Measured scan of single mutants.
Amino acid sequence: MGFKLLSKLLVYLTASIMAIASPLAFSVDSSGEYPTVSEIPVGEVRLYQIADGVWSHIATQSFDGAVYPSNGLIVRDGDELLLIDTAWGAKNTAALLAEIEKQIGLPVTRAVSTHFHDDRVGGVDVLRAAGVATYASPSTRRLAEVEGNEIPTHSLEGLSSSGDAVRFGPVELFYPGAAHSTDNLIVYVPSASVLYGGCAIYELSRTSAGNVADADLAEWPTSIERIQQHYPEAQFVIPGHGLPGGLDLLKHTTNVVKAHTNRSVVE
Protein backbone atom coordinates (compact mmCIF):
# COMPACT_ATOMS: atom_id res chain seq x y z
CA MET A 1 0.00 0.00 0.00
CA GLY A 2 1.47 3.42 -1.01
CA PHE A 3 2.09 6.05 1.66
CA LYS A 4 -0.34 8.52 0.10
CA LEU A 5 -3.11 5.92 0.07
CA LEU A 6 -2.29 4.92 3.64
CA SER A 7 -2.41 8.55 4.80
CA LYS A 8 -5.80 9.06 3.21
CA LEU A 9 -7.06 5.82 4.75
CA LEU A 10 -5.94 7.02 8.20
CA VAL A 11 -7.87 10.27 7.72
CA TYR A 12 -10.97 8.32 6.70
CA LEU A 13 -10.70 5.94 9.65
CA THR A 14 -10.19 8.81 12.08
CA ALA A 15 -13.27 10.57 10.77
CA SER A 16 -15.29 7.34 10.91
CA ILE A 17 -14.31 6.68 14.52
CA MET A 18 -15.27 10.23 15.48
CA ALA A 19 -18.62 9.92 13.78
CA ILE A 20 -19.39 6.74 15.73
CA ALA A 21 -18.12 8.12 19.02
CA SER A 22 -20.09 11.37 18.72
CA PRO A 23 -23.01 10.90 16.34
CA LEU A 24 -24.79 14.09 17.34
CA ALA A 25 -21.79 16.38 16.97
CA PHE A 26 -20.24 14.93 13.85
CA SER A 27 -21.54 14.83 10.33
CA VAL A 28 -18.35 14.05 8.43
CA ASP A 29 -18.44 14.89 4.75
CA SER A 30 -18.82 11.68 2.76
CA SER A 31 -18.13 13.35 -0.58
CA GLY A 32 -14.51 12.22 -0.75
CA GLU A 33 -11.02 12.20 0.69
CA TYR A 34 -9.17 15.15 2.16
CA PRO A 35 -7.83 17.27 -0.73
CA THR A 36 -4.09 17.02 -1.37
CA VAL A 37 -1.63 19.45 -2.92
CA SER A 38 -1.68 17.70 -6.30
CA GLU A 39 -5.44 18.17 -6.57
CA ILE A 40 -5.59 21.93 -5.98
CA PRO A 41 -4.16 24.34 -8.58
CA VAL A 42 -2.59 27.49 -7.16
CA GLY A 43 -5.31 30.14 -7.03
CA GLU A 44 -8.08 27.69 -6.22
CA VAL A 45 -9.46 26.63 -2.84
CA ARG A 46 -11.20 23.50 -1.60
CA LEU A 47 -13.52 23.15 1.39
CA TYR A 48 -13.75 19.94 3.41
CA GLN A 49 -16.54 19.45 5.93
CA ILE A 50 -15.21 17.91 9.13
CA ALA A 51 -18.32 18.18 11.28
CA ASP A 52 -21.68 19.90 11.39
CA GLY A 53 -20.82 23.57 10.98
CA VAL A 54 -17.05 22.98 10.79
CA TRP A 55 -14.95 22.99 7.63
CA SER A 56 -11.30 23.20 6.75
CA HIS A 57 -10.21 25.29 3.79
CA ILE A 58 -7.28 24.11 1.73
CA ALA A 59 -5.25 26.19 -0.72
CA THR A 60 -1.86 25.84 -2.40
CA GLN A 61 0.94 28.30 -3.01
CA SER A 62 4.22 28.32 -4.94
CA PHE A 63 7.28 28.94 -2.80
CA ASP A 64 10.95 28.49 -3.72
CA GLY A 65 10.08 26.48 -6.81
CA ALA A 66 7.71 24.05 -5.09
CA VAL A 67 3.98 23.98 -4.40
CA TYR A 68 2.73 23.57 -0.84
CA PRO A 69 -0.73 23.06 0.66
CA SER A 70 -2.07 25.24 3.46
CA ASN A 71 -5.00 24.64 5.79
CA GLY A 72 -7.38 26.96 7.59
CA LEU A 73 -10.68 26.59 9.42
CA ILE A 74 -14.27 27.78 9.01
CA VAL A 75 -16.74 27.54 11.91
CA ARG A 76 -20.42 28.39 11.83
CA ASP A 77 -21.50 30.97 14.40
CA GLY A 78 -25.28 31.18 14.20
CA ASP A 79 -26.13 32.65 10.81
CA GLU A 80 -22.55 33.81 10.28
CA LEU A 81 -19.14 32.25 9.78
CA LEU A 82 -15.87 32.64 11.66
CA LEU A 83 -12.77 32.21 9.50
CA ILE A 84 -9.48 31.02 10.92
CA ASP A 85 -6.50 32.10 8.80
CA THR A 86 -6.38 33.40 5.26
CA ALA A 87 -5.76 31.18 2.25
CA TRP A 88 -2.15 32.40 1.80
CA GLY A 89 -2.37 35.43 -0.45
CA ALA A 90 -4.88 37.85 -1.94
CA LYS A 91 -5.85 35.71 -4.94
CA ASN A 92 -6.37 32.59 -2.84
CA THR A 93 -8.31 34.46 -0.17
CA ALA A 94 -10.64 36.00 -2.75
CA ALA A 95 -11.18 32.50 -4.14
CA LEU A 96 -11.86 31.28 -0.59
CA LEU A 97 -14.62 33.84 -0.05
CA ALA A 98 -16.17 32.91 -3.39
CA GLU A 99 -16.05 29.20 -2.54
CA ILE A 100 -17.63 29.81 0.86
CA GLU A 101 -20.45 31.78 -0.76
CA LYS A 102 -20.97 29.00 -3.31
CA GLN A 103 -20.87 26.02 -0.95
CA ILE A 104 -22.05 27.36 2.41
CA GLY A 105 -23.95 30.53 1.57
CA LEU A 106 -23.38 32.29 4.89
CA PRO A 107 -21.39 35.50 5.39
CA VAL A 108 -17.90 35.52 6.88
CA THR A 109 -18.07 38.29 9.48
CA ARG A 110 -14.91 37.71 11.54
CA ALA A 111 -11.49 36.24 10.87
CA VAL A 112 -8.61 35.31 13.17
CA SER A 113 -4.99 34.97 12.04
CA THR A 114 -3.05 32.49 14.17
CA HIS A 115 0.41 33.97 13.57
CA PHE A 116 2.19 36.64 11.56
CA HIS A 117 3.51 34.68 8.57
CA ASP A 118 2.08 35.30 5.12
CA ASP A 119 0.28 31.95 4.98
CA ARG A 120 -1.90 33.22 7.87
CA VAL A 121 -2.23 36.96 7.18
CA GLY A 122 -1.70 37.15 3.41
CA GLY A 123 -5.15 38.14 2.17
CA VAL A 124 -6.24 40.11 5.25
CA ASP A 125 -6.69 43.19 3.05
CA VAL A 126 -9.09 41.20 0.84
CA LEU A 127 -11.08 40.19 3.91
CA ARG A 128 -11.17 43.76 5.19
CA ALA A 129 -12.40 45.03 1.81
CA ALA A 130 -15.17 42.43 1.94
CA GLY A 131 -16.36 43.78 5.30
CA VAL A 132 -14.81 41.05 7.43
CA ALA A 133 -13.52 42.13 10.86
CA THR A 134 -9.97 40.80 11.14
CA TYR A 135 -8.36 39.83 14.45
CA ALA A 136 -4.99 38.70 15.78
CA SER A 137 -3.07 38.88 19.02
CA PRO A 138 -1.12 42.10 19.72
CA SER A 139 2.07 40.09 19.22
CA THR A 140 0.94 38.87 15.80
CA ARG A 141 -0.07 42.37 14.73
CA ARG A 142 3.28 43.78 15.84
CA LEU A 143 5.33 41.03 14.18
CA ALA A 144 3.32 41.30 10.96
CA GLU A 145 4.09 45.02 10.83
CA VAL A 146 7.80 44.40 11.39
CA GLU A 147 7.79 41.74 8.66
CA GLY A 148 5.96 44.01 6.23
CA ASN A 149 2.99 41.63 6.07
CA GLU A 150 -0.70 42.53 6.12
CA ILE A 151 -1.93 43.48 9.59
CA PRO A 152 -5.28 42.36 11.06
CA THR A 153 -7.28 45.32 12.36
CA HIS A 154 -8.35 44.22 15.83
CA SER A 155 -6.33 42.92 18.79
CA LEU A 156 -7.21 39.76 20.71
CA GLU A 157 -6.59 40.37 24.39
CA GLY A 158 -5.86 37.81 27.10
CA LEU A 159 -3.42 35.68 25.10
CA SER A 160 -0.05 37.05 26.17
CA SER A 161 1.14 34.29 28.55
CA SER A 162 1.74 30.60 27.87
CA GLY A 163 -1.40 28.64 28.71
CA ASP A 164 -3.80 31.57 28.22
CA ALA A 165 -7.16 30.72 26.64
CA VAL A 166 -10.10 32.92 25.63
CA ARG A 167 -13.49 32.15 24.15
CA PHE A 168 -14.12 33.74 20.77
CA GLY A 169 -17.60 32.96 19.50
CA PRO A 170 -17.87 29.22 18.74
CA VAL A 171 -14.17 28.50 19.38
CA GLU A 172 -11.56 28.73 22.08
CA LEU A 173 -8.27 30.42 21.26
CA PHE A 174 -5.23 29.08 23.11
CA TYR A 175 -1.69 30.37 23.36
CA PRO A 176 0.53 27.37 24.16
CA GLY A 177 3.78 29.31 24.17
CA ALA A 178 6.41 29.74 21.49
CA ALA A 179 6.74 26.99 18.89
CA HIS A 180 6.79 27.50 15.09
CA SER A 181 6.72 31.19 15.97
CA THR A 182 6.59 33.10 19.22
CA ASP A 183 2.99 34.19 18.61
CA ASN A 184 1.33 31.01 17.27
CA LEU A 185 -2.22 30.36 18.48
CA ILE A 186 -4.20 27.11 18.63
CA VAL A 187 -7.93 27.00 17.89
CA TYR A 188 -10.33 24.49 19.43
CA VAL A 189 -13.95 23.84 18.45
CA PRO A 190 -15.49 22.32 21.61
CA SER A 191 -18.79 21.38 19.96
CA ALA A 192 -16.96 19.06 17.56
CA SER A 193 -13.69 18.16 19.37
CA VAL A 194 -11.73 19.67 16.47
CA LEU A 195 -8.26 21.05 17.20
CA TYR A 196 -6.66 23.37 14.66
CA GLY A 197 -2.95 23.41 15.38
CA GLY A 198 -1.84 25.73 12.62
CA CYS A 199 1.86 25.69 11.82
CA ALA A 200 2.76 24.60 15.35
CA ILE A 201 1.63 21.08 14.37
CA TYR A 202 2.99 18.92 11.53
CA GLU A 203 1.24 16.33 9.40
CA LEU A 204 2.37 12.72 9.90
CA SER A 205 4.20 12.51 6.57
CA ARG A 206 6.48 15.40 7.44
CA THR A 207 9.95 14.36 8.53
CA SER A 208 11.82 17.68 8.45
CA ALA A 209 11.27 20.82 10.48
CA GLY A 210 11.02 23.09 7.45
CA ASN A 211 10.92 26.84 8.06
CA VAL A 212 12.14 27.39 11.61
CA ALA A 213 13.59 30.87 11.11
CA ASP A 214 11.17 32.34 13.65
CA ALA A 215 10.77 29.22 15.80
CA ASP A 216 11.70 28.60 19.41
CA LEU A 217 13.02 25.05 19.07
CA ALA A 218 13.80 24.70 22.77
CA GLU A 219 10.30 25.73 23.88
CA TRP A 220 8.32 24.02 21.11
CA PRO A 221 8.03 20.56 22.77
CA THR A 222 6.85 22.17 26.03
CA SER A 223 4.24 24.18 24.14
CA ILE A 224 2.95 20.99 22.53
CA GLU A 225 2.69 19.41 25.98
CA ARG A 226 0.47 22.31 27.01
CA ILE A 227 -1.78 21.67 24.02
CA GLN A 228 -2.04 17.98 24.91
CA GLN A 229 -2.84 18.77 28.53
CA HIS A 230 -5.42 21.43 27.66
CA TYR A 231 -7.25 19.43 24.97
CA PRO A 232 -6.91 15.71 25.77
CA GLU A 233 -10.40 15.14 24.37
CA ALA A 234 -9.55 16.45 20.89
CA GLN A 235 -10.42 13.90 18.21
CA PHE A 236 -9.62 15.58 14.88
CA VAL A 237 -6.37 17.55 14.59
CA ILE A 238 -5.63 19.84 11.64
CA PRO A 239 -2.00 20.85 10.97
CA GLY A 240 -1.10 24.08 9.24
CA HIS A 241 -0.06 22.18 6.13
CA GLY A 242 -1.05 18.73 4.90
CA LEU A 243 -3.33 15.95 6.03
CA PRO A 244 -5.21 15.99 9.36
CA GLY A 245 -5.26 13.17 11.88
CA GLY A 246 -5.56 12.62 15.63
CA LEU A 247 -3.59 13.62 18.69
CA ASP A 248 -0.71 11.51 17.40
CA LEU A 249 0.22 14.53 15.28
CA LEU A 250 1.33 16.28 18.47
CA LYS A 251 3.79 13.57 19.44
CA HIS A 252 5.01 13.33 15.85
CA THR A 253 5.68 17.07 15.75
CA THR A 254 7.66 16.88 18.98
CA ASN A 255 9.76 14.04 17.56
CA VAL A 256 10.52 15.98 14.36
CA VAL A 257 11.44 19.13 16.27
CA LYS A 258 13.69 17.25 18.71
CA ALA A 259 15.40 15.39 15.86
CA HIS A 260 16.08 18.68 14.11
CA THR A 261 17.45 20.21 17.30
CA ASN A 262 19.71 17.22 17.93
CA ARG A 263 21.08 17.34 14.38
CA SER A 264 21.76 21.06 14.74
CA VAL A 265 23.71 20.46 17.96
CA VAL A 266 25.81 17.72 16.33
CA GLU A 267 26.53 19.86 13.28
Rank of each mutant, 00 (worst) to 15 (best):
M1I: 06
G2N: 15
G2C: 09
G2A: 08
G2D: 15
F3W: 07
K4F: 06
L5I: 15
L5M: 15
L5D: 15
L6M: 12
L6Y: 14
L6V: 14
S7A: 09
S7E: 09
L9M: 09
L10V: 14
V11Q: 07
V11D: 11
V11Y: 07
Y12T: 13
Y12N: 10
Y12W: 11
L13I: 15
L13E: 07
L13Q: 10
T14P: 14
A15H: 12
S16D: 08
I17R: 09
I17W: 13
M18G: 14
A19N: 15
A19Y: 15
I20V: 14
I20N: 14
A21W: 10
S22H: 08
P23G: 10
P23E: 09
L24K: 12
A25P: 13
F26K: 15
D29V: 10
D29M: 10
D29Q: 10
S30G: 15
S31E: 09
S31Q: 08
G32V: 10
Y34V: 11
Y34W: 15
P35W: 12
T36G: 10
V37C: 08
S38N: 07
S38T: 10
E39L: 13
E39D: 12
I40G: 08
P41K: 13
P41G: 15
V42C: 08
V42K: 10
V42N: 13
V42R: 10
G43D: 10
E44K: 11
E44I: 08
V45L: 04
V45S: 07
V45W: 02
V45Y: 00
R46P: 04
L47T: 08
Y48G: 07
Y48R: 11
Y48H: 11
I50V: 12
A51P: 04
A51I: 07
D52V: 11
S56F: 14
S56D: 09
S56N: 15
H57E: 02
I58F: 10
A59I: 07
A59R: 05
A59N: 10
A59P: 04
T60A: 12
S62P: 07
S62D: 10
F63H: 05
D64K: 15
D64H: 15
D64A: 15
G65R: 09
A66K: 12
A66E: 14
Y68M: 04
Y68N: 06
P69W: 07
P69E: 15
P69A: 13
P69K: 08
S70H: 03
S70Q: 03
S70T: 05
S70K: 03
S70A: 04
N71A: 05
N71C: 04
L73K: 01
L73N: 01
L73R: 02
I74S: 04
I74A: 05
G78E: 11
G78H: 10
L81D: 00
L81S: 02
L81P: 02
L83M: 10
L83W: 02
L83K: 00
I84W: 00
I84R: 00
D85S: 00
T86K: 02
W88M: 00
G89E: 00
G89H: 00
A90T: 10
K91Q: 15
K91G: 13
N92P: 01
T93N: 00
A94T: 14
A94F: 13
A94W: 11
L96G: 00
L97R: 00
L97M: 08
L97P: 03
I100Q: 00
E101A: 14
K102C: 07
K102M: 13
K102Y: 10
Q103C: 10
Q103T: 13
I104E: 00
G105W: 06
L106K: 12
L106A: 11
L106V: 11
P107H: 11
V108M: 01
V108A: 08
T109V: 13
T109A: 11
V112R: 05
S113Y: 02
S113M: 04
T114Y: 00
T114G: 01
T114L: 00
T114P: 01
H115V: 00
H115K: 00
F116A: 08
F116L: 04
H117K: 01
H117F: 00
H117Q: 04
D118A: 10
D119S: 01
R120C: 05
G122F: 01
V124E: 04
V124N: 03
V124I: 10
D125P: 04
D125M: 08
L127K: 03
L127P: 04
R128T: 12
R128I: 11
A129N: 15
A130C: 06
G131T: 07
V132G: 02
V132F: 02
A133D: 13
T134F: 02
Y135N: 04
Y135K: 01
A136W: 05
A136Y: 01
A136L: 04
A136N: 04
S137V: 06
P138F: 08
S139I: 13
S139Q: 12
S139D: 12
S139W: 11
T140R: 04
R142A: 13
L143P: 04
L143W: 08
A144L: 14
E145A: 13
V146L: 13
V146Q: 13
V146N: 12
V146E: 13
E147L: 13
G148Y: 06
G148S: 09
G148C: 05
I151C: 02
P152L: 03
P152R: 02
T153N: 09
L156Q: 04
E157R: 11
E157W: 11
G158D: 08
G158I: 03
S160K: 13
S161P: 06
S162G: 14
S162D: 11
S162V: 10
G163P: 03
D164K: 10
A165C: 06
R167T: 13
F168Q: 03
F168N: 01
F168D: 00
G169W: 05
V171F: 00
E172F: 01
E172T: 04
F174H: 04
F174E: 01
Y175E: 01
Y175V: 03
P176R: 01
G177H: 01
A179L: 00
H180M: 00
H180S: 00
H180E: 00
S181V: 03
D183W: 01
D183T: 00
D183M: 00
N184E: 00
L185G: 03
L185Y: 02
V187Q: 00
V187Y: 00
V189L: 06
V189M: 02
S191Q: 12
A192P: 06
S193A: 12
S193N: 12
V194D: 00
V194F: 01
V194G: 01
L195W: 01
G197S: 03
G198T: 07
G198R: 04
G198Y: 02
A200H: 02
I201V: 14
I201P: 03
I201T: 06
Y202M: 15
Y202L: 15
L204C: 06
S205G: 10
S205D: 12
S205T: 10
S205K: 09
S205E: 14
S205N: 10
R206I: 15
T207Q: 14
S208H: 11
S208V: 11
A209Q: 09
A209M: 06
A209F: 07
N211I: 06
V212F: 04
A213C: 08
A213G: 11
D214K: 03
D214M: 03
A215H: 04
D216C: 04
L217G: 03
A218Y: 13
E219S: 12
E219V: 08
T222D: 14
S223C: 03
S223M: 02
S223Q: 01
I224Y: 01
I224C: 02
I224N: 05
E225W: 12
Q229W: 11
Q229Y: 11
H230E: 11
Y231I: 02
P232Y: 07
P232R: 10
E233H: 12
E233W: 10
E233A: 12
A234L: 04
A234M: 06
A234R: 02
A234V: 08
A234S: 09
A234W: 02
Q235N: 09
Q235D: 13
F236K: 09
F236P: 04
V237M: 03
I238D: 01
I238C: 03
P239A: 03
G240K: 03
H241M: 01
H241W: 01
G242I: 06
G242Q: 02
G242S: 05
L243I: 14
L243K: 15
L243F: 12
P244Y: 08
G245S: 06
G245Q: 04
G245E: 04
G245P: 00
G245A: 06
L247A: 14
L247T: 15
L250Y: 05
L250H: 06
L250R: 03
K251S: 13
H252I: 04
T254N: 11
N255D: 13
V256A: 05
V256C: 04
V257D: 01
K258D: 11
K258V: 13
K258R: 12
A259Q: 11
H260R: 11
T261K: 12
N262L: 11
N262V: 10
R263K: 15
R263S: 14
R263M: 15
V265K: 11
V265S: 12
V266Q: 13
V266P: 13
E267L: 10
